[in-house]
Every structure is written in structure tokens, then in C-alpha cells.
Design a protein around this nucleic acid. Structure first.
Lengths: 97, 97
DNA sequence: GTAACGTGCAACTCGAAGGTTGCACTGTAG
DNA sequence: CTACAGTGCAACCTTCGAGTTGCACGTTAC
């Protein structure tokens, strides 16, 4: 248990609904800044920035600074998880009825 | 965000390495009691029991009391996740090299 | 009946997670 | 050059999660 536990970090990142929402948003829009995302979530910019940092730690998101703004986008792993999340949601829908 | 968030509960349950270990163990053995599992993990029986409760809340595990012991086993959803975890681990292995 | 086993419940500690505010810094627009 | 937009950093608060100990209760064995 003293090992990195990559899987745990990823699941931990995906456990939060706000972060999954960010993934969905980035999947639609391609890229976004923390400030832009703040308009979509009921929290401050700094809170959003923390979520983005968590997603980045999990390797689901990457950032690039352009001038005075920092743009975030999904990594390959992040896109894959966006797809898996869709599948899972459909799976749950089916099971529930 | 005030909704049940099933997915969040499941991911939260899977985020812990000990709990993923329990899932693997139940997948191999079929069933186990909290006391049995305590032999496999570096923690007390009560801690294991809490993990099992978390897994049960997520719908990954179910329990049945038989006399003085309570036996746990994977639900259908739990078995599916055991498979997905295997796939994910292989996926990560490939990506890493 | 009594002793031992397996469990469940409650109270507690400790650290991390999610969120906030305040401020300093760096670009860009006039 | 000045003002403002966009960040990043740090301190703080509060809640939750993981783990512990202690104890009471039902079940099996002798």
C-alpha cells in the first residue's frame, strides 16, 4: 500500500461529481480555462483550480499557459474515461429499470 | 449535486486500495467473513468491517448472516467491476512501457 | 451453564479533501 | 504608464474518511 496506487488516484479523481462534470465540459468544448469553468460550477475559481489540479495529478487533464490564461484539455486517458463514463451511465440506466 | 450520485459512491469505494483488494479476494474465494479478511489486510477487524459496509453501500458486495458469522460475497455489479479492474490494470501496464 | 467466538455499535484521534478569503504577480488593453 | 483581467499561492475552516479501542450482544462448543 506504500506504492503509488495510480488506480486509486484516478478513481479518487472520478469520485467527485464536479470533476466528472469538468471532464464532460472539456470533452464538449475541447479546452477551457479555470475562470470559464467557474461559470459552470457553483463554486469559486480557486475551488475549480483545485479540481483541475486533482484531475491533472490523475493524468486526466493537461494544461498549457498561453499569455495570461491557462488552458486545460483532456489527455488521452481523460478522453477514454469520458467514454467509459458514458458507457457506465447507460449501464446504470439499464440496470435501474 | 444534491442527488444520490451513484457513480460517485462507486468510484469512491473503488478509490481505496484495501477495498479493491477485498474485491479481488472475494472474487477468488467466493465468500468471506470480516474476520477472515482481517488476516489478509494490515488492519483490525472493525476497519475491515467498515470497508465492507462501504462496498455494500456502493452495491458491490452483499452480506448474509449465517448463525454467528456474516458472510460477504460480490454482487453482480461487484463481479463486473472486478473484471473492469483487471482490464484497467492491463491497460495501464501497456501504457506505461 | 459457561466459556469462547464472531459480530455490531459507539466514541475517539488524525489527516486529508473540498471550499473559502485575501493577496501578490504577470500579461494585455487603453 | 496605468488599469484590469487571469492566475497562483497561502492560510484558514469544516467535514469526512480511515483507523483505533472498548464494550455489549447473540451463537456455538463443551
Amino acid at each position: 500500500m506504500t506504492q503509488p496506487d495510480q488506480l486509486g488516484v484516478v478513481f479518487g479523481a472520478l469520485a467527485d461529481a464536479s470533476r466528472r462534470q469538468v471532464i464532460g465540459y472539456l470533452s464538449e468544448r475541447g479546452t477551457a480555462t479555470a475562470t470559464e469553468l467557474t461559470g459552470e460550477l457553483p463554486m469559486t475559481r480557486q475551488a475549480v483550480a483545485k479540481h483541475l489540479a486533482t484531475l491533472a495529478d490523475a493524468g486526466l487533464v493537461e494544461s498549457e499557459r498561453q499569455g495570461r490564461e491557462t488552458r486545460y484539455r483532456l489527455t488521452q486517458a481523460g478522453s477514454e474515461w469520458d467514454d467509459r463514463l458514458d458507457s457506465l451511465r447507460r449501464h446504470l440506466e439499464r440496470r435501474r429499470r
